[in-house]
Design a protein around this nucleic acid. Sequence first.
DNA 1: TGGCGCTGTTCCACTCAGTGAGACGAGGAC
DNA 2: GTCCTCGTCTCACTGAGTGGAACAGCGCCA
Lengths: 255, 255
Amino acid sequence: MSDSLGVLDRMTAIFEAFDEDDRGLRISELAERAELPKSTVSRLVSALVRQHYLERDGTVIRLGLRLFELGQLAEEPRELRAAALPVLADLRRATGRSAYLAIRDAHEMVCIAIMRGDTTTPLICRIGGRIPVHATALGKAALAHADPAAVDAVVATGLAASTPSTITDPARLRNQLVGVRRDGLAVDVEEFGIGVTSVAGPVFSPPGVLVGAIGVSGLSGDIDVEASGPHVRGAALALGRRLAPGGVPPRRPSH
Amino acid sequence: MSDSLGVLDRMTAIFEAFDEDDRGLRISELAERAELPKSTVSRLVSALVRQHYLERDGTVIRLGLRLFELGQLAEEPRELRAAALPVLADLRRATGRSAYLAIRDAHEMVCIAIMRGDTTTPLICRIGGRIPVHATALGKAALAHADPAAVDAVVATGLAASTPSTITDPARLRNQLVGVRRDGLAVDVEEFGIGVTSVAGPVFSPPGVLVGAIGVSGLSGDIDVEASGPHVRGAALALGRRLAPGGVPPRRPSH
DNA sequence: TGGCGCTGTTCCACTCAGTGAGACGAGGAC
DNA sequence: GTCCTCGTCTCACTGAGTGGAACAGCGCCA
């Protein structure tokens, strides 16, 4: 808190004001969402547009191309993704469902790569999107192998219910994590999306560090949990083996 | 130039110091590349790490997860990509080669989506990567339908040779662009990568605005330029039709 | 036509946030 | 031990960034 770096905070407030489903924001909206004076936003936006971090078309501001480029340069997603693509393709082929790869960031999973199964199945997440750790197979797979403090932190943020089946009781969650750790497999039956079932497993890099989770997801009627298990487990192991030692360093716990 | 916004410039200098093939940089390297004092870099990096725009593992700094997320939120790539995925899949199936989608930014094309053909063919570009406009089929397809000032600007930056076959003579480039505009198709035979041939076409959104280029690329021996033409043209049209009117607004010329 | 509500940009005096040379402490190498 | 090089911290200085207020440019309506 001592080191504020005001300009940066203001800048990130502007970036964070953008959300998935708006097609561009105007200065006033931006100022309101970021809780900053209009004049400040106007000035910062001009600077960011000049740097191509934002784009502007008339009065409408959008996230810029350079952010897309920089994002693609981020090492962890990039390397993990590159290693995972063939594995995800195999997993999709074997199960016929959509295959996902995600990494944990605090109490959410960030989706890194997706291989869509049949186009009728709805996706549970967009690439770069976030889903709750406690309510998804991917999340539980990762959390089960995280250090205990991480579990405490997740519980502490509160287990929000996404559907009536979401696990909201800390004790039940912890209990289930034990099973996940034993089986090397996590399942979520309509805990995140109604009508959607998922199976996922933890991915370890060769030194044995947890790097993320891989799994499949589909309509509850379409997916065969029993049959998917071995495929998911196989994919998790295959991906682990493909990760060059030290290639994808472990994530530091997020402060 | 009047409005400098020093902190932002320093911050972008830090971001821009990262390049594709280094696995993290230390503060000193960062300071050297960004041409900033170590103490300043140290301070800014701390702030950016706190915001998850950078990640740090011991002394090694990497681009952070939030950049990846933000990048995925950037509207233009996101919408174009979503519309293009099925089209790219068809194109790959029809030609058996790797299919690419890119948009133009000044004198370079930024790659937005790729569907890899057979895994033996080398890719000409990574997602989020840049390739020169004048030396690639994708670039020439886009440039042929850009406004004349854009062509002048590209020529003015100098036509650097990537291979002995790269077009470096402005007159010859302009001449070829006329043909591309007539045919709705651009070809590059080993002008960017030795042994690599590509075919690409311009993509227009329904109001008739150029939004990018789509094409295929492969080893010169594998790719059948004549046969690919109609598939590429078809894909370009199909993608255009899939773009909701106003969905992907035209790019402003980059200052 | 003139007034109104809404944009986004510019101005400018105030001041505090950011700067960076240099001091500092922590490792490694030998 | 000495000598590197690493990253962080200190602190006096100052100019860069701030934001309220004034301004300019719409589009709308009576």
